[in-house]
Design a binder for these strands. Structure first.
Length: 620
DNA sequence: AAGCGATGTCATTCG
DNA sequence: TGCGAATGACATCGC
């Protein structure tokens, strides 16, 4: 089958410039009959037999005869074809009768054609407390900062996401945010180029610097007394600066004490260092534990004396440990990535729409421009008219392959694919005619013959059939004319039932062929658009993660400010005798009502530890 | 020779 | 009811 198909088109010719070749072929068939006179049926004879055979079908044989062969196992078809091949061997000695026996049934279409060739088969945003906040609620000093931060449970996962995304996006997402984030001078939040929300809490922090003892309560109210999930045992508040040992403090101060958090290095001295493991992270109690997980290194830097250099070094460690590729994310277009993303989205959608519109326009242009490869001898005029489209050129094939990428070129597809495609697995009469030559081993093909081969290969099966049936108009017309015009065209000619049947089949197949092409293009379009969507979403995710990093950085800066504020406040506190309180014995705690309490250090530590456990318990 | 993408074709569904 | 579009499935080709 395979070999047969290939060979069947090896001698045919068609399409642009094929007219002489057609003549040549016709001449070969008619004007140059085989050596045995009368032993070779002319094309007319073949067609007549074919038509008669088809009329038999039309008169009662029914389509199932087609279908019979169509549904044959390939072996059956092969067998049949081989039979035809065997008969073909005797062809020269027999007449039209033998030719009639050589009729093959198209294995796919059920249409007949003469077999003439051997079948060789192959929250940070809450930093400013709401004034409506109910007083008396005691809270972490910085807990408001943490409201809105996500659950610690998935932070780790999100960091992993971040790392992976950043790595993934390293090549394509140009980010400046990280540069801003990590290269900005520490402690100079205002110098950062934030254009996003992080500005807000940072700017608010400015007021923290204005905190003074006298106004500390008020100033601390900058921190939202918003209650997290901490139990509020009562509204009782300790008197400010009351060095009480009352156990009620435990319940009263469900929140973290400031001392454990903000032990100023200069006040706490070495105690901070030694007590580091025991005492809560100076800021940790203020933060959600998960937040600590994320910025623990930064905190450490802060904890160890607010050395900006160390802090930045630690940040770098943090960065590298977290797998963030700063280099890759430093590129300045990070902030534009959303734009790029959106533009990409829009472009993708526009491209898809354009391609689809191009597709539709291509479809709509079929009937106008489409010129299928077939043209009968009587359609010389048509051929000339449509010559440009009819002619097959290899470039056209490439062009059409590219046309998918370039939807604007899509309009070339319908007829060109038509012409250019080379599904030659079914024999066609003309091809068989041309193939009905002395064995290749004995005759060298001339260049014209090769060209005929090439051109004939471009002819579709239906074109061959149409030619064999002497359909008086082009397949293009058959396929692409509107129904009315098509019927009009049919009425202009007196066509046999066989011809009409073939024409209908050609039309059906041709339409379906284009439909299949369009369908496949749409499918590819859909896939490409989905791929673009995935890329866009990945970019968005990376951008959001970067924003998150910025927020964390902003939070860290706020912590620094709170810490310095704590130091300032604590350092100004004096007892009755006018002596400063020892940071190792006392700590400040922020109450929800805005007041600041001085509590014993031990109590503060207890509360800090309790505070630490809560998230862990919650996590369990 | 097997795998794979491209293409044509058929059958079927749907508007 | 006929027609055409859309699409899944299959076959075939060509690499």
């Amino acid at each position: 089958m395979t070999r047969l198909d290939r060979s069947s088109h090896s001698g045919g010719g068609h399409a642009k410039g094929s007219q002489p070749l057609n003549s040549l072929l016709a001449g070969h068939r008619v004007a140059q009959p085989p050596s045995a006179p009368g032993s070779r049926a002319s094309v007319q004879d073949i067609d007549l037999i074919d038509i008669l055979w088809r009329q038999d079908i039309d008169l009662g044989a029914g389509r199932e005869i087609f279908d019979y062969s169509h549904r044959q196992k390939e072996q059956d078809v092969d067998k049949e074809l081989q039979d035809g091949a065997e008969q073909e061997d005797t062809w020269p000695g027999e007449g039209a009768e033998a030719l009639a026996r050589n009729l093959l049934v198209d294995g796919e279409t059920g249409e007949s054609f003469p077999a003439q060739f051997p079948a060789d088969i192959s929250s940070i945003t809450e930093a400013v407390p709401s004034e409506s906040e109910p007083p008396g609620l005691q809270n972490n000093l910085l807990s408001p900062l943490l409201t809105g931060t996500e659950s610690p449970f998935d932070l780790e996962q999100q960091w992993q996401d971040l790392m992976s995304i950043m790595e993934m996006q390293a090549m394509e997402v140009n980010t400046s945010t990280s540069e801003i984030l990590y290269n900005a001078p520490p402690g100079d939040p205002l110098s950062t180029n934030y254009s996003l929300a992080p500005n807000t809490p940072i700017n608010q922090n400015v007021s923290l610097h204005q905190a003074s003892l006298g106004g500390c309560s008020q100033d601390f109210s900058l921190f939202s007394p918003e209650v997290e999930s901490l139990p509020v045992a009562g509204s009782s508040t300790l008197l400010p600066l009351a060095p009480s040992n009352s156990t009620s403090l435990n319940s009263t101060f469900g929140s973290t004490n400031l001392a454990g958090l903000f032990f100023p290095p200069q006040l706490n001295g070495t105690a901070n260092d030694t007590a580091g493991p025991e005492l809560p992270d100076p800021l940790g109690g203020l933060l959600d534990e998960a937040m600590l997980d994320e910025i623990s290194l930064m905190d450490l830097a802060i904890e160890e004396g607010f050395n900006p250099v160390q802090a930045s070094q630690l940040e770098e460690e943090f960065d590298s440990d977290s797998g963030l590729s700063l280099d890759s994310s430093h590129s300045p277009s990070s902030l534009s990535s959303p734009e790029g993303s959106s533009s990409s989205s829009s472009s993708s959608s526009s491209s898809s729409s354009s391609s689809s519109s191009a597709s539709s326009s291509a479809s709509s242009s079929f009937s106008e421009e489409g010129a299928v490869g077939y043209s009968s001898d009587s359609e010389t005029l048509d051929l000339e008219e449509a010559e440009g489209a009819v002619g097959y050129q290899p470039e056209y094939s490439k062009f059409c392959r590219m046309s998918y990428q370039d939807p604007s070129q899509l309009s070339c597809l319908p007829y060109l694919e038509h012409v250019g495609h080379n599904h030659t697995y079914n024999m066609a009469p003309s091809a068989l005619d041309s193939a009905d030559l002395p064995p290749p081993s004995t005759v060298k093909k001339g260049s014209k013959e090769k060209q005929a081969d090439f051109l004939d290969k471009q002819m579709s099966r239906d074109e061959h059939r149409a030619r064999a049936m002497k359909i008086p108009f082009t397949n293009d017309k058959i396929i692409n004319l509107p129904v009315e015009e098509f019927n009009e065209l049919l009425s202009k000619y007196q066509l046999s039932e066989a011809q009409l049947s073939l024409i209908r089949d050609i039309r059906r197949r041709g339409k379906n062929k284009m439909a299949a092409q369009n369908c496949r293009k749409r499918k590819l379009d859909t896939i490409l658009n989905l791929e673009r969507d995935v890329e866009d979403l990945q970019r968005d995710k990376a951008r959001l993660l970067q924003e998150k990093v910025e927020f964390l950085r902003s939070l860290r800066q706020m912590k620094q400010k709170v810490q310095s504020l704590y130091q300032e406040v604590f350092g100004r506190l004096r007892d009755e005798n006018g002596r400063p309180y020892s940071p190792s014995q006392y700590a400040l705690q922020y109450a929800g009502d805005g007041s600041v309490l001085l509590i014993p250090r031990t109590l503060a530590d207890q509360q800090a530890r309790r505070q630490e456990r809560k998230p862990k318990d919650r996590r369990k």
